[in-house]
């Protein structure tokens, strides 16, 4: 019996036209064609999608959760990047 497993694929579904593809889970399949076919059966049995992407999991590069503070803290402290930081005189419309 073979011990080699089929590769792991990450599945992304576009739920309707105009929206992004969103990660929904993963599955195993020998190649991209069967990964798409399996994704259709496993993740779209109730009209969840109109388009599927599959990406082999080992091609996904992720940030390290322990770096999250140093990566994302700088943007938390820059409140002036948001429009609500600024005061405008009363009576100004559409700004």
């Amino acid at each position: 019996m073979s011990n080699r497993e089929w590769p792991l694929w990450e599945v992304f579904i576009r739920s309707k036209q105009g929206l992004n593809h969103k990660h929904v889970g993963s599955l195993r399949a020998p190649d991209a064609t069967l990964a798409l076919a399996n994704a259709r059966d496993v993740y779209t049995r109730r009209s969840e999608g109109i388009s599927i992407w599959v990406i082999e999991s080992n091609n996904v590069h992720a940030s390290d959760p322990s770096d999250a503070d140093s990566l994302f803290e700088p943007s938390d402290t820059k409140v002036y990047r948001h429009p609500t930081f600024y005061e405008v005189p009363d009576g100004i419309k559409h700004m």
Binding site: S2, R4, W6, P30, D31, L34
Partner: peptide, 9 residues
């Protein structure tokens, strides 16, 4: 079946 699909891929 699994082995054949892998070999084909």
């Amino acid at each position: 079946v699994r082995e054949a699909a892998m070999a084909y891929a």
